[in-house]
């Protein structure tokens, strides 16, 4: 009796869940079916998948290039944001709030507002059509996510820890690695994931600065969409879903193992 009423009360939950899954899961199924269907016909075909297999070299080159600048943007963002994040977390006042706002703004500002000008500068600097140029411009728009995550992490560290380590004779580097880094890690990973996604997913900046010469996964995908070849585009899009999911699972495992080894995970 009691069990039945529990089950009855759960029914609305299931309906709710079904609604959410339908709303967000359906599009993924749509991509899958369109990758398996022939153009304008309802027949099943593996054409798109065969094509991608045959073209695996260009396809994998584009993917590797995108993964490369995605991960590099993460590293660049971390390296350039650590010190500013610490300074922002420790300082107070309205002037510092303005500095923080200016440093975070590039992620909020529509990138086209400065990208066309940056493109002109990059032409003069010889950075257009280069992989480094692409990495650089992607760093402009993605580092704020890392900066914000690191500010939040630093705000949770008691400055006394650093003082303690220093008093016990640890140098600046040692203090950073042994005392601060463990606290920063979860935030850095969370911020880094967003940085990676922003860089990996971007189309416009890569296309503008890379000029179609720097291989990129989005630049590989878009022509298929524009020429309405939705089966190949659908198959490629599933890779976009798969890569982040695989990376997040790996990162989650690695972080747990790492923190457990340091005795910090529960």
């Amino acid at each position: 009796m009691c069990e039945r009423s529990a089950r009855a009360s759960r029914r609305p939950d299931v309906v709710r869940l079904a609604l959410i899954i339908a709303l967000f899961g359906l599009p993924v199924i749509m991509l899958l079916t369109s990758s398996l269907s022939a153009r304008g016909a309802a027949t099943l075909t593996l054409r798109a998948w065969r094509y991608l297999f045959a073209e695996r070299r260009t396809f994998l080159t584009a993917l590797a290039s995108s993964l490369g600048y995605g991960f590099s943007a993460m590293v660049v963002a971390f390296a350039s944001s650590v010190l500013p994040a610490k300074a922002l977390a420790r300082a107070h006042g309205s002037r510092i709030a303005v500095v923080e706002a200016i440093l975070l703004a590039p992620a909020l500002l529509p990138s086209i507002t400065f990208a066309i000008g940056v493109h002109q500068l990059f032409i003069r600097a010889g950075l257009v059509d280069t992989w480094i140029g692409v990495l650089l411009v992607l760093s402009f728009v993605s580092y704020p996510y890392m900066l914000r995550a690191l500010i939040a992490s630093y705000e949770s560290i008691d400055p006394a820890y650093e003082q303690c380590a220093r008093n016990l004779g640890a140098g600046a580097l040692r203090t950073f690695v042994r005392v601060e880094l463990p606290f920063l890690l979860p935030g850095a990973v969370a911020g880094g994931s967003v940085v990676f996604l922003v860089a990996f997913s971007d189309y416009f900046l890569v296309f503008l600065i890379g000029g179609g010469i720097v291989p990129a996964f989005t630049s590989y995908l878009v022509p298929f969409i524009r020429s309405a070849d939705y089966s190949i585009a659908g198959a490629l899009s599933l890779v976009f879903l798969l890569v982040p999911v695989v990376l997040f699972v790996l990162q989650d495992r690695a972080l747990t193992v790492l923190l457990r080894r340091r005795g910090m995970a529960v």
Partner: peptide, 11 residues
């Protein structure tokens, strides 16, 4: 949140 805008466009 994970999908790039171009894929949202495709969908």
């Amino acid at each position: 949140l994970i999908l790039p805008h171009v894929v949202i466009g495709l969908i």
